[in-house]
Amino acid sequence: MKRLIAAISLIIILGCGVYAVAYMQQNVPITYDGSNVDVYELQQNPQDYDTSDPDGVASIIVQENLAKTQAVNNVTAIVFDFRGYDTLGESFVLLIAITGATVILRRKRDRWEGGKK
């Protein structure tokens, strides 16, 4: 019974994935693949390279940062807005690591009586 439920759920998830792929193939959004960037020219003459209109999502983040987020610090805008999921994962990794250290060292904490009044 459990295997049947698991198989049905996997089939449903697979169907959702196939439908998503088929749906994305119908109307392809405008993507920035960096095809216009001349990497060799940029590596040879970085001062003379025309960076006024480069291709790529990084240039969008840099150029339209103030208009999109109003955060002066660009790194904070990227970490907490454009990549919020990433920061969420990082903070939970820290939480899980500290919880693991607590579990390992739990026998050494018997003498601690701080703040218990």
Partner: peptide, 20 residues
Amino acid sequence: WSAGTISLMNYAVGFKVLTG
């Protein structure tokens, strides 16, 4: 106070890392 939830999430992460 600018950038909306960026500052709020920044404070939350700062508090979390401080105590952690």
